[in-house]
Computed example of a mutant assay.
Amino acid sequence: MSDTTTRALSLLNLLQTHRHWPGTELAVRLGVTERTVRRDVERLRDLGYRIESSPGAAGGYRLEAGSAVPPLLLTDEEAVAMAIGLRVAASQRLVSGPETTITALAKLEQVLPAPLRRRVNALAETVQPSGINAGAPVDSEILGELALACRDHERVRFVYTAASGEVTRRRVEPHALAPADRHWYLLCWDLEKDDWRTFRVDRLADVEHTRVLFEPKPLTAEEIEEFVFVARSWVRTAVEADAVMELPLEVMRENFGQWAQGATAEDATHTRWPVGGSDFRETMYGLSWIPAGVEYATDLASPAREELRETLERMLRALDAPPPPHSAV
């Protein structure tokens, strides 16, 4: 393989791994001049790759979708990951159905070397997605667009329909996509709310790429997992109430972390926090997490209010009573 061909393939690999590359950075990574980069870009265009170029200090190159699918360059690890992902997708409720993913999987596995095919078979047996196939169908195109935005740290806009039916237009910095409890979730920084938010992907529509890049905020894998756990727990419950606590919103967020989702400032010194559960016991457990010494009021309605009061009164009597004697053995 000639140096020119090798260099062009290296350039293609770079263009496939990021949405936008400045010409100067491509030249440095390839060890050539910017003029050579321009020539190699033209070679790739002749092969059917649509590469958009923009002039100026902030200009560069961007691999665009074309009218036909050109060849892709994949590393061994990427090919294995893609084959496993297609196997999982074939059994999930993606809008395009399992047929598309099965045919794509057949084409990919047909060209995989035997050692890689064995790796795919071994790993696929251990990949057991938990219950996603029982959830709401997800548009695979939207899922792909969001995945690209997460990878490239690109701001996006989309229309979101909440569980209540309220429709809003959101502008966010996508951070991660995660499947959990039969659904896909997008974790992102909401630019209007100036806070982390988690959205159900099946309720998303009209995803729009802004081409505005951002520096991602630090977030650990454990924090991502907790955000998603809170999001899938955030559903309408049989017993619902608001707790208005004597705590400023920012201080409340510091104490509650991801569980502060849904909290709003009542005024400069008070925060309203929704809390609930399947019965009054779960609501009581939620209220117990309000920090010690912080006074609060709640609008817990009847009959849960009376049930909670009776339970607490019995607990207080039990605490005030002398401990029962141990029976002799």
Rank of each mutant, 00 (worst) to 15 (best):
F280G: 02
V88K: 02
A149Y: 02
I224D: 01
H153T: 08
P115D: 06
A301F: 00
S327Y: 10
I290N: 00
S67Q: 11
G286T: 00
R38A: 13
S130T: 15
A241L: 12
R29H: 14
W259G: 02
C188Y: 08
C150T: 08
L249Q: 10
C188S: 15
Q92D: 12
A83W: 02
E306K: 09
A58C: 04
F199W: 04
V212E: 10
R118C: 06
R7V: 10
R62W: 01
L112M: 02
V167K: 11
V239G: 00
L86E: 00
D181Y: 01
P174K: 06
A268M: 06
P274R: 15
R87H: 11
G60L: 05
P98Y: 01
D76I: 01
L123I: 07
S140L: 11
M315Q: 11
P55H: 03
Y285P: 00
Q16K: 08
A260W: 05
L319W: 02
R169E: 15
W234Y: 14
S327F: 15
E310C: 01
E223M: 03
D181K: 03
M315F: 05
A68W: 09
W184S: 08
D202Q: 13
G56N: 05
S288T: 05
I132K: 00
G276F: 03
Q261N: 12
S288R: 10
E141D: 14
E246Q: 09
R39L: 06
L146D: 04
A134S: 08
G277L: 06
Q258P: 10
R232N: 11
A83E: 06
Y296V: 02
Q110E: 14
M245N: 06
H175C: 08
E208G: 05
S67F: 08
W259I: 04
D279C: 11
T36Q: 13
R50S: 08
P70C: 08
A231F: 00
T220I: 12
E77W: 06
R38D: 11
R169K: 13
K107R: 15
E34L: 12
L249S: 05
L247T: 13
H20L: 12
E226N: 13
S67M: 10
E226M: 15
I84L: 08
P179F: 05
W289G: 04
M252T: 00
L204M: 13
T126N: 06
I102P: 00
D202H: 15
D76L: 02
H270T: 14
G257H: 11
F227S: 04
G85F: 03
V28R: 14
R169C: 15
V239W: 01
A79K: 01
E246P: 02
D194A: 14
T24V: 13
H20W: 15
L213C: 04
E307S: 11
F256W: 14
E208S: 05
F256I: 09
L63H: 00
P115H: 10
L74D: 02
R93G: 03
Y296S: 04
A134Q: 10
T103D: 12
G66W: 02
E125N: 09
V138F: 04
V294E: 09
G60N: 09
A163N: 03
E77P: 01
